[in-house]
Design a protein around this nucleic acid. Structure first.
Lengths: 338, 338
DNA sequence: TTGTAGGCGTTATCAG
DNA sequence: CTGATAACGCCTACAA
């Protein structure tokens, strides 16, 4: 493998000291335009690129951001992967690379992260976060950020989370403004925080517009197509004029149930889903020839913002502890004015 | 942030030289059990972890593997992401971490990769691979591996690819052995190599069993649910007894068309799909209450093997140029004996 | 079995 | 504006 040249060789070629070269490549300090050009020429001729490892050692900073993904089964669901994309983008825009730690189940990452000095800061994502890792990182004062709302006893971590409450409230208000009052909600949960928040937003909208909350219209947690299908079948017995559904898979199931019942969207029932899985959502829209109105989680933006937070933190800038990112209500063709 | 201790401090605490400590942490050279214990004790007391950056600089090796993903729209489809998972796992098992480069569209990565000395080797994945990057890396003798079959003029790269020909051939043979001869194929393509190979496998199976190839049963490229739906509608006019479909989305579309035509799987028609999107495939199986027989691309294994190849290569081991990974035929409930 | 000296490629510090 | 010198933390080579 061809060896690349180093700073000293460039210095020799340009007839200056290594520090001058260093100043040129870092745009730091004052260098006369003349020597500057000499150095740049030498750099070009030798095809020189700084060795980032050596730089990291000297600077005690790698410009690498760590991302730890705690997954349930060692494989990331699509949802996570889109966020990872965003983190990468955000880091990249600020001059950082991303080192992804994952897939070492029931293993702790924190020692490798804090000691190895390979990453300057870290982002944690996932449901099954390793508590030991957090305490470890926290105690060492190592910069870290969560994706997702977190409160850990005794620790007030930095985190960024989608604003599920607000997003769902806006969607529900949209329906109410269209004249709907009998609005179903598929996706209640007492365990999963985002789903809990979604229901909260739904309730807030009803409350604000003096619509009475009817538990009969609310259905339990639904993560799958089949769940959505079954829930909708039950819900239809209540003759709702609109429905809000938890996630993409459930939405597909639910709309199938609607179709099977001989009902039309939006003529007979208005539908708002969550397109947490955008790829699938688009495919499905194409397929049914209808653009569903959805609440979109800007996952890439979420990841980007997480990267920005972490970098702001590790660079010692003032950083707000909690951050919320707005969901987008995609007002498409599946809602009708009553 | 609390500073971690270094090798010299450990040496002092243990009352030995830094080299002895180095030997202990690397299990290299001979160290008497007694001093060894002393050192280990000091390491534990100081909570010492080697600084990987310094080690990398000294060894000129980072134990980090690079993965470049060339994406079409800056966001990876689910398919890629599962492979990335696998690469990570494979790298991890061999003591490597993974640095993922992506999302810098129309940008070249190769300089950063080969010069920065942050990665010891690199894996390239994606359709829109940057030719400049390849030549660059190739000319420098920097270790690299492709995921996906590649032949670049003048270059015979190392690559690993799913064996689409064999996988599809096996599936088709399975159908033939069940007595089918009128087997549809949805997903022909002259552009996309994997799809091209799938058709080849289909044809090989027919040829081997002396079944005449009928182009009327073969339908053009289909990447979406809608494509699959439309193709199947056409295909059904030919009254096939079985069909093989290109990918998960198309399979969902196709089975919907079958259902709409009032036909039953597998009673009226046998179906074999590709579950390139496993998450979706499982959801759909649940939903229709039928386990579709599929050809599965072991994406995690594919990624793992890519990592193994790249690492074998960069460590200077003998490594075969081309590697194929077998697809798994999941013999489930959607095929019937005639 | 253990230690000493020097180097990996860069940046920080302090003089000039 | 420029340069010598000493880190950064570890490893390799050689010596004892």
């Amino acid at each position: 493998m061809t060896r690349s040249s180093n700073l000293i060789e460039v210095a020799k070629a340009a007839g200056v000291s290594n520090m001058t070269v260093s100043r040129v490549i870092n745009n730091s300090g004052n260098v006369s335009e003349k020597t500057r050009q000499k150095v740049l020429k030498a750099i070009k001729e030798l095809n020189y690129q700084p060795n980032l490892i050596a730089r990291s050692l000297a600077r005690k900073k790698t410009n690498i951001l760590g991302l730890v993904v705690y997954t349930e089964q060692g494989v990331h669901p699509a949802f996570y992967n889109e966020i990872i994309n965003g983190v990468q983008k955000g880091a990249s825009e600020l001059g950082y690379d991303l080192l992804v730690f994952a897939n070492r189940e029931d293993q702790s990452y924190s020692d490798r992260i804090t000691h190895s000095s390979f990453v300057d800061g870290v982002i944690f994502m996932g449901v099954k976060i390793n508590q030991h890792d957090i305490r470890n990182v926290h105690e060492k004062g190592f910069p870290y950020v969560f994706i997702g709302k977190r409160e850990i006893e005794g620790i007030h971590p930095y985190y960024i989370s989608p604003d599920y409450v607000k997003g769902t409230r806006m969607a529900a208000e949209h329906l109410i403004e269209l004249g709907h009052t009998k609005i179903g909600f598929i996706g209640q949960s007492r365990i999963i925080e985002p789903d809990y928040d979604k229901l909260l937003g739904y309730q807030e909208a009803l409350f604000k517009h003096h619509v009475v909350y009817n538990p009969q219209l609310v259905f339990e947690e639904s993560q799958t197509q089949l769940d959505g299908y079954n829930a909708m079948k039950e819900l239809l017995k209540q003759k709702p004029t609109a429905v809000i559904i938890n996630n993409t898979y459930a939405t597909i199931g639910a709309t199938t149930a609607i179709k099977e019942a001989g009902l039309q969207i939006p003529e007979d029932i208005s539908v708002i889903g969550f397109d947490d899985n955008q790829e699938l959502n688009e495919q499905y829209n194409d397929f049914i020839g209808l653009e569903l109105s959805t609440i979109r989680i800007p996952k890439v933006e979420l990841g980007k913002e997480a990267a920005r937070m972490a970098i702001s933190l590790l660079e010692g800038n003032e950083t707000p502890k909690a951050n919320f990112i707005d969901l987008h209500f995609m007002k498409n063709d599946s809602c009708k004015k009553l």
